[in-house]
C-alpha cells in the first residue's frame, strides 16, 4: 500500500504542486489548509510523513511542529519543513521559544526552502520513508 503523506500549507499553489509530486511518486497525498486542520488530519489519518509550511494563518507550522514533537505518540512522525522562511530565522524562533517555554525541541528532520525542484522534494521524502 502507498504511504500517506500529509501536506499542510495555506497556499493552494503549493498544495497542488506537492500533491502532484506525491502522486507522481506513488504516495497517497492528504491535504490540510492550516495548522489546526493539519493536527486534526494527523490524529485522524496517521500519515507516514508530514510536509509542513511555517507561516500560515490559524495555527502556524511552528505551533504544530512543537505540538507534534512534544506528543509522546506523534513525535515519531517524520516532518519535512517546507517553507519560504530561511532556516536561520526558523532556528532563531525555535531557540527563543525553547527559552520561553523551557525544554528543547529537536530540529526538523529535513528543512527545505522554497522554491524546490520536484526531484529534491522526492529525494527528501524517500530519505525519510523510502
Amino acid at each position: 500500500m502507498n504511504k500517506k503523506v500529509l501536506v499542510v500549507d495555506d497556499d493552494p499553489d503549493v498544495r497542488s504542486f506537492v500533491v502532484t509530486v506525491l502522486e507522481e511518486n506513488q504516495y497517497t497525498p492528504l491535504v490540510a489548509h492550516d495548522g489546526i486542520e493539519g493536527l486534526e488530519m494527523i490524529e485522524k489519518s496517521a500519515p507516514d510523513l508530514v510536509i509542513l509550511d511555517v507561516l500560515m494563518p490559524r495555527g502556524s507550522g511552528i505551533r504544530l511542529y512543537r505540538h507534534l514533537k512534544t506528543d509522546d505518540v506523534l513525535k515519531n512522525i517524520p516532518v519535512i519543513m517546507f517553507t519560504g522562511i530561511a532556516l536561520k530565522s526558523f532556528l532563531k524562533s525555535q531557540k527563543a521559544l525553547d527559552e520561553f517555554k523551557g525544554g528543547e525541541i529537536p530540529r526538523p528532520d529535513i528543512y527545505l526552502e522554497k522554491p524546490v525542484e520536484p526531484e529534491e522534494l522526492v529525494r527528501a521524502i524517500q530519505k525519510k520513508i523510502g
Binding site: 499553489d13 503549493v14 519560504g84 520536484p118
Partner: peptide, 14 residues
C-alpha cells in the same frame, strides 16, 4: 516575488 516564483514553478510542474 519568491512566493510568485514558487507558484510559477509549481504550476509549470503540474
Amino acid at each position: 516575488v519568491k512566493n510568485i516564483l514558487i507558484g510559477l514553478k509549481g504550476g509549470s510542474y503540474v
